[in-house]
Design a protein around this nucleic acid. Structure first.
Lengths: 344, 344
DNA sequence: TTGTACGCGTTATCAT
DNA sequence: ATGATAACGCGTACAA
């Protein structure tokens, strides 16, 4: 590493290192002329400050980390863009950190806080249920955004969260189908052992059936396959194909995510079943792709924009001192497109 | 920051800091018992080494950075997963770095090298044409993966690249349509001022027409709209809708990306035009979503797996000393699905 | 096998 | 306005 450092620049300019530092960091007490000279010298010599050294020394930086598990969830990717915009609006930078399926997001967070002197953390789409997390050790404010389940080993006033009421929205979606005359409503839910988002929506589905005097038929619910990626089109496709083979009669299908629904459309298409003429179909999330499918997907749209704004606002409320931890539940809204037929 | 550091641990264990360091980094010359004791103490006190300090001190780490522009390109996201697998196979870690549309990827790379002591860099899907880049200043090996255009201000033996022959593949795709009896072939190309991937495929298209005695009709080529996100379904949809309004006769449409094609399907659907009965449609890339559309999309599949492997292998060839910079061009392969009709 | 001391590149403190 | 110098937390040469 024969690259130039701050001392080299100082020497070349005939000034002290602290003056160079002041020039770099826009400190007020520096002569504009010397500053200009130094900046010029820096440009000429391609000097780039070392971030590790800066992070090491700095008390705290103006950066918020966003931790996301995986990258395949298009809904979360839409969220990222919006979060970044919001974070920038507050004059901070966003550090996006991807965490692996087999990694513990809290461990990563702990490391990151030390490394980058974070001011706050946003956990995107994680699942904190049934897991003893080290969340308590986190000494910077954090918020669980679009998380389906909450951690149990930490009290509600020690963290914030933003999510949609998965059970209630699952209920609304099911009720919508029932109102349209559907009684035999199939469902693609999360994996059996999962206790999060998918399961909550399933619970809403069951409740809606019950409240409308329709007996729940376990034969109608399918679960994502564990051997295929979660919430992928392929998973939706395969599961639906298997389900169709069983020839269980049904008039509508409710998939817990749009991507699963999109896979299901394909399975129907191959089986010669027309949506919505032969069966109705709804998804959940409101992702872009659902707008362009044929037919376009009726779905429960998550208020991405609102969720992103709330997430960041709550977080900065805590960082800036005013405001305590909050648990915000956003309203999803029904997006009626083309995949549902009225039976009555 | 009242968090514990290596000195605290050393004090608590009654050993020197170097011994603690040895325990952490699996150095051989340490008594197993003291090691155990230290590790236990570390766990008890939730000690987490500071990465900034480590990076600062370490001569070099075993990490490769992958720089990707944006996050919306599903094709590139598929690449990431594969790259990571390959990098791990070599015993290295991957650092994924997202770069903004308005950021210069080379600047980011330069910073990163200093900060994390990278051993290599992979630029994913960037565009280096018509731009004076500081690529030369990069003193670690780097490779341009799936880049449509090469930088001009640096010689070929100073960097590596992996890509598909965009022009040739565009040619093959067009020829495939011609072989199927199509003569009036429309095209969705990149933006007008773009000189990269999209434009190359367009050139292949023109050449194929020419070689087959079909005169090129500029009325048949549409360009992505600059006011909508590049290569998005929405862009494909809007552009196609506008095109249909012009009522230019055509029998097939070649979109330079699958996502654009998927948007086009929707535009056709709304216009009551059946694919492939009324018009044929092909895309480019071979992304997952194209498998599940209705009809499934015939496309030119990029050999993602091969490209990822080649990328990493070439890079490590240089890092490990054997092997020089290479420029590998991979073969795309035609994936025939359901969106093309034989006219002859 | 273990401990001491120095340096990595920067920012912050305190003089000047 | 500027410069010297002490941290920041860690790895490692060198000494023991």
């Amino acid at each position: 590493m024969n690259s130039v450092n701050i001392r080299d620049i100082a020497r070349m300019c005939g000034v002290g290192v602290s003056t160079v530092s002041r020039a770099i960091n826009n400190h007020p007490d520096i002569n504009p002329e010397t500053k200009e000279k130094i900046l010029q010298c820096i440009a000429d010599n391609n000097y780039i400050p070392n971030n590790s050294a800066r992070n090491l020394k700095r008390q705290e930086s103006r950066v918020i980390a966003v931790l996301i598990k995986g990258l395949t969830n298009t809904f979360l990717i839409e969220m990222i863009q919006l979060l970044e915009k919001e974070i920038k609006r507050h004059g901070y930078a966003m550090a996006l950190e991807r965490v692996h399926f087999d990694q513990d997001e809290v461990d990563i967070a702990l490391e990151l806080v030390k490394e980058k002197r974070l001011r706050g953390i946003i956990f995107l789409g994680g699942d904190f249920e049934n897991r003893v997390s080290k969340l308590k050790e986190l000494d910077v404010p954090f918020i669980l955004s679009t998380a389906g389940s909450q951690p149990e080993d930490i009290s509600e006033d020690e963290y914030s969260s933003v999510s949609v009421a998965d059970m209630e929205e699952g209920y609304k979606m099911t009720e919508y189908l029932i109102k349209n005359g559907h009684k035999r409503i199939a469902m693609i839910s999360a994996k059996t052992d999962d206790e999060s988002i998918g399961k909550l929506r399933l619970r809403g589905y069951k409740k809606a059936l019950e409240d409308n005097g329709i007996t729940f038929d376990p034969e109608l619910v399918m679960f994502m396959r564990p051997d295929i990626e979660d919430y992928s089109m392929e998973n939706g496709y395969e599961v639906t194909k298997q389900f169709l083979a069983k020839k269980v009669p049904f008039t509508a299908l409710f998939a817990v995510s749009d991507t699963l629904a999109l896979g299901a459309i394909r399975a129907f298409y191959e089986a010669g079943i027309k949506v919505p003429d032969d069966v109705s179909l709804v998804g959940f999330d409101g992702v872009e792709a659902g707008k362009f499918s044929c037919p376009a997907l009726t779905t429960m749209g998550q208020p991405v924009k609102e969720m992103a704004k709330e997430t960041v606002d709550i977080l900065f409320g805590i960082i800036d001192g005013h405001g305590a931890h909050k648990h915000k539940i956003c309203q999803a809204h029904l997006v009626e497109r083309e995949s549902v037929r009225k039976l009555n």
